[in-house]
Amino acid sequence: MALLTVAVVLVAALGLLNLVLLLGVVRRLREHTDLLNDRQSAPPEVMLEVGSIPGDFVSTTVDGRVFTRADIPPMTLVAFLSPSCDHCEEQIPALLDRAAGMPGGAEHVWVVVVGKGEATQPYADRFAAVATVFVEPGTGALPLAFGVKGFPAFGLLDQRGIVASTAFGIARLDLPVAR
């Protein structure tokens, strides 16, 4: 009989230990869920942080004009796209629409097509009417100056050439309205 009592007490103790450990795991899972939700609600970092100044660069447009950081006009929309990026392709109609309505016209919209090979030129030609277009490799001067971390990447530079807004999708970018 004493053996049976010891066995029942041991099983009860193991059950309580299991319950305490399970409650600890559930609490920890809730903490992880909160952390993941906070991280997913924050927009992905696609380029320099808001308030940053792009690095120095020298880059040539598809039509042969040379630009440096000092040549960036005030209130400029900058877009970094890649022909190999499916999400970039989805953003093109909205980008063309927003670029057409950008105050200052094509001089205030810079589209940087990032890639190598034959696919870059036809891709760049799509933006010729509404933007100043550059074609550069991923290690080119403009992607490095703007700290591009992924594609597509959109940014707006303010009157002083400081990054005022960045976004992964053009619809999320705060752009000025043409008057």
Score class of each variant (00 low, 15 high):
141 A>W: 03
35 L>C: 07
172 R>A: 15
178 A>C: 09
79 A>M: 04
61 T>Y: 07
76 T>Q: 02
65 R>C: 00
18 N>D: 07
55 G>N: 02
174 D>K: 11
96 L>P: 14
73 P>L: 03
76 T>H: 08
126 R>Y: 04
63 D>G: 07
101 G>L: 06
129 A>G: 12
100 A>G: 07
79 A>E: 02
110 W>D: 13
23 L>G: 15
3 L>Y: 02
57 F>R: 02
127 F>A: 03
59 S>M: 03
95 L>N: 08
21 L>E: 15
53 I>M: 14
98 R>F: 09
122 P>H: 01
68 T>Q: 07
61 T>K: 00
152 P>D: 03
124 A>H: 06
29 L>M: 12
115 G>S: 03
64 G>P: 11
132 T>M: 06
59 S>P: 05
113 V>G: 06
6 V>D: 12
29 L>H: 08
28 R>W: 11
16 L>A: 14
154 F>A: 00
1 M>Q: 14
73 P>V: 05
137 P>E: 00
45 E>A: 14
57 F>Q: 09
93 P>Q: 04
154 F>H: 02
153 A>N: 01
28 R>P: 11
170 I>R: 09
42 A>C: 07
111 V>P: 04
135 V>E: 00
47 M>K: 07
1 M>A: 13
140 G>T: 07
100 A>M: 04
162 I>A: 05
34 D>Q: 09
69 R>G: 05
5 T>E: 10
108 H>A: 03
14 L>S: 13
55 G>T: 11
68 T>Y: 04
140 G>N: 09
121 Q>S: 14
164 A>T: 08
87 H>K: 08
146 F>K: 01
150 G>S: 11
129 A>S: 13
129 A>I: 04
71 D>L: 07
14 L>H: 13
33 T>D: 14
166 T>Q: 13
113 V>M: 05
146 F>S: 05
9 V>H: 05
99 A>P: 01
87 H>T: 13
160 R>N: 15
116 K>W: 01
24 G>H: 08
36 L>S: 01
4 L>Y: 11
150 G>E: 00
39 R>E: 15
164 A>M: 08
69 R>L: 02
105 G>A: 08
141 A>H: 08
157 L>R: 00
49 E>C: 04
148 V>W: 12
174 D>Y: 02
27 R>V: 14
89 E>M: 02
3 L>A: 12
176 P>R: 00
166 T>M: 10
141 A>S: 12
68 T>V: 10
86 D>S: 14
52 S>Y: 06
34 D>E: 13
17 L>H: 14
68 T>W: 00
40 Q>C: 01
5 T>S: 09
2 A>W: 09
8 V>K: 10
150 G>C: 05
119 A>Y: 09
116 K>C: 14
71 D>F: 05
77 L>S: 09
158 D>R: 05
105 G>Y: 09
19 L>G: 13
